[in-house]
Design a protein around this nucleic acid. Sequence first.
DNA 1: ACACTAAGTTTAGAAAATGAACAAATCAAC
DNA 2: GTTGATTTGTTCATTTTCTAAACTTAGTGT
Lengths: 379, 379
Amino acid sequence: MNAMLTSSQRQLLRAISESGPLSRTEMAQMLGLSKAAMSGIARDLIDLGVLHETEIVYGQGRPSVLLDLHPECAFFVGISLLEDPAPMILSDLNGKIIARQAMPLSRDPKVIAEAITEGLPSLLEAHPDAKEKLSGIGVALSGFVDESQANCVKSTLLGWQDVPLAKIIRERSGIETFIENDAKAVAVSEKLFGSAREIQNFSVVSLGDGIGCAHFIDGRLYRGNHGGAGEIAHCTIEPGGSPCRCGKRGCLDTVASMKAIKEMSRAEGLECTSLSDIENEASTGNAAAIRILHRAGSALGLAIANLIQMNDPGLILITHVEGSFEGLFGTVVNQAIETNVLPRYAGQTPIRIKRVDGDVWARGAAGIAAHNFLIGSSY
Amino acid sequence: MNAMLTSSQRQLLRAISESGPLSRTEMAQMLGLSKAAMSGIARDLIDLGVLHETEIVYGQGRPSVLLDLHPECAFFVGISLLEDPAPMILSDLNGKIIARQAMPLSRDPKVIAEAITEGLPSLLEAHPDAKEKLSGIGVALSGFVDESQANCVKSTLLGWQDVPLAKIIRERSGIETFIENDAKAVAVSEKLFGSAREIQNFSVVSLGDGIGCAHFIDGRLYRGNHGGAGEIAHCTIEPGGSPCRCGKRGCLDTVASMKAIKEMSRAEGLECTSLSDIENEASTGNAAAIRILHRAGSALGLAIANLIQMNDPGLILITHVEGSFEGLFGTVVNQAIETNVLPRYAGQTPIRIKRVDGDVWARGAAGIAAHNFLIGSSY
DNA sequence: ACACTAAGTTTAGAAAATGAACAAATCAAC
DNA sequence: GTTGATTTGTTCATTTTCTAAACTTAGTGT
């Protein structure tokens, strides 16, 4: 239903998704079109149910009517293949989670497609609206995804190589489907729904068991030439350091991922099962805990500083699941960023910390579907 | 004369500049237009003298006529403010250098504009064609330049802050003028004239007294949020290492720039004035020379590896003025890249080495002018 | 010489934009 | 209140840009 949007219509949707509600006149200025053209485009999109009039702003002269996306004009399903059971959520066009369930994870694409298809009815059960207007499925996974957001080029976690997962799910479920790398999916959903809406250049660093990263450049997700842009986890931070499961040494992942921090704690004989535990130990003066947090924080900070130097993003968004950035770890990270960035730049790149819950990945996946619905893959 | 090109015409020029000569049918496919539309666009551009028919390719059916940019349809002047005297070159639309001279360098923008204007007649003297079709001036400088390629936000070397250099030169000379950071200018000219024409994502690392770097992403120069994308020289490579003039420690610049290499040699008591000298010493077994080249090479390699991990470019183009990459330095660089890149990726990112002469910067500057003539700043 | 093939052009007409005039909805001022 | 100023948004005739389909052109293969 959505494939036949004009290029201008798409541009408009993109603009609104970036800046929030706009009057027709503002839209016209933004896209460089005449008021006349804008009027027609807006009317069409309102008729389609994608836009609707919201606020009326009074000023001098005729008041302007703000148009915004109609959040209930389309619904999306997002699935994360990062955990077992795999979270599965239903979201609207604002990224609001409307329903949530889980499905069994599998390594067999066909079984996944089957599980998704079977899970849909119950996910949509209490939401007849959503059932009718379900416009896309998004899947987040750990691995490399191609430009078309259809094929998984390689996933070590899932043991895949060149798996056309999107096609398989699409064929089984009958719903438009797109897949994406986990960190990239989060970046897209932050651009669409989150705190980076209006920012054209930013990077997301997602801190969890592993470390993920993705870049938005000139308002678009930058996937890299082999889909590997943002593989910050395997930047060498401690040359000659500990061996990494990737085969080389001293990767950021071996020092600053939650998994690494926990392993280091265990090796030091600390009985810690979470970042908060270690932070607690450190705050009571435990030297080992302090050392570990220092090492991890400096490494992450250095990597982020290098990212800033390299790409000069307008925002670094650090998402983390566990613990908080209020403690020693966060302080060290910030310090390390400051000391490793060109002094002239220090403090010029906003660092935003965002604590996220277990829905991040599924929500990100839904964002991929929403992005394809709204804007499409090309400009 | 050139400001009123259609968006389609610009797209076409971009496509040809990327892929070389194309038949009308190929063009139509590339831009997603009908043959009919293409026919008209091509005719207009031929009438304007921008395109011309070159080769005829015989196959089955009617032979196709390849169209290419007419290299003599426009000429550009490029000036490098990196040296004194400042090189000044005249180039055609292929980047071919047609004439060359020098002008005195100054820190006063007005004096620069004056020198350029006064230098033009003699530069153009033997080329009446070029005089008539001079379509732009480009200026390369060390520092930060804003998005519009008109204002120098900051240049430590020139002691500038917010200098509207392009406007000053434009007003004095009457010629359309654009300025750009040195490394970024080289990247643009490599994209336009050089070895990265068909590549959408690549980074240029320019090795000279200092180290410069610039990224092309999705076919466009990526300037970064503050114009600082590519400041690889001040990535921290040796945490806690030697102090850098930027104020922090262990920057790549303090270890791998030609200046740093020479300084380290002097500190070690080597009587070397060029990279070749040090390479020679190393090849005869001089331990200090070997150590220096190892240290510099590993640092540069690590930085490039981090760049690859971070941005997954389709090509790294290393330009260097002095010496060669055949010796120890080059070997170490390559080795360090290999060992610090995800093993799966190793060798996947082509590294191209290009020895350049003293014209690089001026040629890059001319490329900026040519790029603005052909494609304009926006898409 | 004959069909066959593919490139490029022509034509009429659809699609998408513009510009200028106009209608609508408010504020401000008397 | 009525009037004027002001700005939004619409209408409509016109222009620009692109398309589809038929046609012309210039070759190859048999």
